[in-house]
Simulated assay, not measured.
Amino acid sequence: MNNIKPLHVVDMPERLHFIPEWAKSKGMKQVEVALRVGASQGVVSRWYAGNVPSSEYLPKLAELFGTDVHGLFRHPDEEWIAQLLRTRTPAERNKAIEMLLLLFKDDERTGTEG
């Protein structure tokens, strides 16, 4: 399924996660993120710079932002589709993918071009 187009086209950050984007979407500054998950501001600053949080903080961050741990590695604008599909059967997910591909069949963009 390499030809599936992303629903939300963003420039991929140099980091693997979208913690700054999640914080921004919730109106939070680094200091608030630090306080709410029990991390130092220095640790949070390193996350913003690209470090991946330790397994101690990933569940806390996910809870803070109202997603699951995997959601931290998706742009927050794409969370709605993940939540919608999470409770669907594999057959329903495949049907949704087929419908989306039909909807965007004339779109020349690929998943890598943006």
Rank of each mutant, 00 (worst) to 15 (best):
M1K: 10
N2R: 09
N2D: 13
N3K: 11
I4P: 01
I4S: 09
I4A: 13
I4K: 12
I4C: 02
K5G: 12
P6W: 00
L7Q: 11
L7C: 06
H8P: 00
V10N: 08
V10I: 15
V10Y: 14
V10A: 12
D11T: 15
M12F: 14
M12T: 08
E14A: 13
E14V: 14
E14H: 13
L16Q: 09
F18V: 08
F18D: 06
F18H: 14
F18W: 15
I19G: 08
I19S: 08
I19R: 01
P20V: 05
E21A: 15
E21Q: 14
E21Y: 05
A23L: 03
A23M: 03
K26W: 02
M28N: 02
M28P: 00
Q30P: 08
Q30M: 14
V31Q: 09
V31H: 04
E32G: 02
V33K: 10
V33G: 11
V37T: 07
V37R: 05
V37A: 05
G38Q: 07
A39Q: 03
A39I: 04
A39M: 06
A39P: 04
Q41L: 10
Q41Y: 09
Q41M: 12
Q41R: 14
Q41V: 15
G42P: 11
G42E: 09
V43S: 14
S45F: 03
S45T: 12
R46K: 13
W47K: 05
N51D: 15
N51Y: 13
V52Y: 03
P53S: 06
S54H: 03
S54Y: 01
S54A: 09
S55Y: 05
E56R: 12
Y57K: 01
Y57T: 00
L58Q: 14
L58M: 14
P59S: 07
P59Y: 04
K60F: 04
K60W: 03
L61C: 01
A62E: 02
A62I: 12
E63Q: 06
L64A: 06
L64Q: 01
L64I: 07
L64D: 04
F65G: 00
T67V: 11
V69C: 04
V69W: 00
H70A: 15
G71R: 06
G71I: 04
G71T: 08
L72M: 04
F73R: 04
R74T: 02
H75S: 03
H75C: 07
H75E: 11
H75N: 10
P76Q: 15
P76A: 10
P76W: 12
D77S: 09
E78V: 13
E78G: 12
E79P: 00
W80L: 07
W80Q: 12
I81Q: 10
A82L: 08
A82R: 01
L84S: 03
L85Y: 02
R86P: 00
T87K: 11
R88H: 01
R88Q: 13
R88K: 14
A91V: 10
A91Q: 07
A91F: 00
E92T: 07
N94S: 04
N94H: 06
I97T: 13
E98C: 05
L100D: 10
L101E: 15
L102G: 01
L102M: 05
L102F: 05
L103V: 02
F104N: 14
F104K: 13
K105W: 00
D106R: 02
D106E: 14
E108Y: 02
E108M: 06
R109C: 00
T110F: 06
T110V: 11
T110A: 06
T110L: 06
E113G: 14
G114N: 08
G114M: 05
G114I: 10
G114R: 09
